[in-house]
Design a protein around this nucleic acid. Structure first.
Lengths: 190, 190
DNA sequence: AATTTTACTTACTAGTTAGTAAGTTGTCAA
DNA sequence: TTGACAACTTACTAACTAGTAAGTAAAATT
């Protein structure tokens, strides 16, 4: 028995990449197993069902996001820098083999994924919106962001558009993604 | 042999609904066949491969869009009314069992769908953007829309956000979709 | 040293997938 | 009236799907 160090984490890494690349219905346990050089059943040992695996991926993603936004390196940034950090997450996804946001990927397939995973992705989406809303609110208070209406609605618009822009970029190129991010900033700073 | 009138169209209707509901990897020929009360092979008779079926759905969607935008009932509208008509398409999707845009659905699964379908969805996306860009340009010229930057970039932002908002609404409710559309209008009219 | 636990493999199942080949039947045109 | 054709059905395949049960070997615990 060759002990692969931290199999659980390696499986989660691969599952996360596959979710962002092919979608929940676009990958199988066999994909993960062959990539890792183990058998299907080894994956089922760590994550009994595909729903368990999906939920674990999203849970870890949520934890990571919480760690970041509560970390001084993000918490103490100016609103503009916070927003740039946030957009940077999506820019990195786009650069990493044209991945899309977990939220967008799973919500596009929402009606063909397990209920537990639906709930989990809803929680992540709410948390992303909440942080973005607070950041926009802070920025408008400081006079650096300018927009009409509720920060919650502006947050929903911005998050929807970066999510959509990552998908758009798959068919129309990275250029289009950058254009959308620039336009968001233009609308916010003008 | 019970003759179902216009099977081809009935299959396309069902396939389109399934694509917008479950995604390309979330439905099968068996789903369509059982819903129509025929056998799998009957679907293969009309559309030999799943790629053929997907392409036919998107092609028909494109044709429909072209017909509408070239029709006087849309062509002769004011820019604001044109935009409302456009948003109405997405509002209707949301109301119709929480469907999402074909473009968003297929681009989220982009890396796990056939190449021919990838190309077809790219063409549709370009056409939607082109029309929206022209409408925004016309509206800004007429003084009814206000925004900075290129109409092409503003069009990409708006299309991305309605696409993303339909997906968001699946996890967070129709309310959120409406909020995004209202915010787009607010940003455009202020 | 004995036992339990962890992390697997082997071997399997039942169901689903897209896709095909060959046969059937109603309709329509020559 | 015959023959072609459209629109299927029957019957099948090979590959893949998630998931399970039982066995194994090393490592950790007692």
């Amino acid at each position: 028995m060759v002990k692969i160090e931290n199999s659980q984490r390696t499986i989660l890494n691969l599952a996360e990449a596959l979710l962002q690349d092919k979608g929940f219905n676009g990958f199988s346990y066999a994909h993960i197993a062959s990539e890792l050089g183990v058998k299907n059943a080894a994956i089922h040992y760590h994550f009994p069902s595909k729903e368990d695996l999906g939920i674990a991926v999203v849970k870890r993603y949520r934890d990571r996001f919480h760690l970041w936004i509560n970390n001084a390196r993000v918490k103490d940034l100016s609103p503009e820098a916070k927003l740039d950090w946030f957009f940077g997450i999506y820019t990195d996804m786009r650069a990493d083999k044209g991945k899309v946001c977990l939220v967008g990927s799973l919500e596009a397939e929402f009606n063909s994924i397990p209920a537990g995973l639906q709930a989990e992705i809803g929680s992540l989406h709410k948390e992303l919106l909440k942080w973005l809303e607070a950041t926009l609110s802070e920025g408008r208070g400081a006079g650096v962001f300018k927009f009409n209406g509720e920060p919650a609605n502006k947050a929903a618009l911005i998050l929807s558009s970066v999510q959509g822009a990552l998908q758009m970029a798959r068919a129309l190129g990275t250029r289009k993604f950058r254009d959308v991010v620039e336009q968001i900033k233009l609308d916010l700073m003008a």
